[in-house]
């Protein structure tokens, strides 16, 4: 077979080219992610460093930065554990409101015909595209009228309100995927409308609820702009307010303290992802897996 199309020389050249390409891609990816890696490394090292050369290059080892855990760095500041509790209240509050409102709303939008249905659907998308910051002043007045300024409940409602449109879209997809037959079957089997929703529909959209709950929790945990704008009193501070205060209140920012508090702020989220990673990978937005 002198005319074989397989020529060893050219094949080897091809393989070399592939390898070079791969090496190039890895180099690029490493370089591109370097700033992020350096950022986190600085955070970890800085949290345990005594002093900073040029103000920000960490040096030495100390636990001094972590003293905020038992003694507020400034007498005007709240106890850190109070702040942690507030952060959880905010995150879980947002989660609860978002899950309840979006699940009920999405069910109705997915299953029922009523005037204005498509308008509502379209407007939820537009709302989601709306930059939240432009609402800041209007929201300030609304919260003041409602007497919710400077309270966590006010921030919970605002943050949840901004999350709901997106969550409704996600949940509507999950409800749309549940066949009508299953719902009808429950009715014929003797369920009321509410029992059908509670005992048949809700379990089937469980993965969707998990997805929007996670998004809502994270957004509550990471809330910043509405907190620092609407909440002043130290009693209602969360960890974001705390970090904001560290950056803003000293003439020279205490980088060691900043790094330590930031690391502390990240720990619950890291733990959460560590333990739920396997489950999270199975959640696909908009898909009812398995079943029939």
């Amino acid at each position: 077979m002198g005319t074989s199309r397989y020529r060893p020389g050219s094949l080897v050249r091809q393989q070399r080219k592939q390898k070079a390409l791969k090496a190039g891609m890895y180099t690029f990816l490493v370089l591109a992610s370097l700033p992020i890696i350096v950022g986190y490394l600085w955070l970890i090292v800085g949290a345990f460093s005594g002093n900073f050369v040029f103000g920000f290059v960490p040096q030495g080892f100390t636990l001094e930065n972590w003293s905020f855990l038992w003694k507020p760095p400034s007498p005007a500041w709240p106890n850190i554990w109070r702040t942690v509790l507030n952060t959880f209240i905010l995150a879980f509050g947002v989660t609860a409101v978002v899950v309840v409102v979006s699940t009920l709303g999405a069910y109705v939008i997915s299953r029922m015909q009523f005037p204005g249905r498509s308008l509502i659907l379209a407007s939820t998308l537009i709302l989601h595209a709306f930059p939240a910051i432009t609402l800041l002043i209007a929201l300030y007045y609304i919260l003041r009228i409602l007497g919710l300024l400077d309270t966590l409940i006010g921030v919970i409602l605002v943050r949840a309100g901004l999350m709901v449109p997106f969550s409704i879209w996600v949940m509507k997809g999950f409800f749309d995927d549940v066949p009508w037959d299953i719902e009808m079957s429950a009715l014929v089997d003797g369920a009321t409308r509410f029992q059908t929703f509670w005992r048949v529909m809700l379990p089937l959209v469980g993965p969707g609820i998990a997805a929007i709950a996670i998004f809502a929790f994270m957004s509550g945990w990471a809330e910043f702009i509405f907190l620092v704008t609407f909440v002043r009193s130290p009693d209602a501070w969360t960890l974001t307010s705390y970090i904001n205060a560290i950056i803003g209140n000293y003439r020279f920012t205490n980088y060691g303290l900043l790094a330590a508090v930031s690391l502390f702020y990240m720990v619950p989220v890291l733990l959460f992802f560590l333990f739920t990673q396997k489950f999270l990978m199975r959640v696909t937005v908009g898909g009812l897996k398995g079943g029939r």
Binding site: D181, I182, R292
Partner: peptide, 13 residues
């Protein structure tokens, strides 16, 4: 009434 759907409509969960 008892109804058997064409899709069977069993509850997957």
């Amino acid at each position: 009434v008892g109804l058997v759907f064409q899709s069977y409509a069993l509850y997957p969960h």
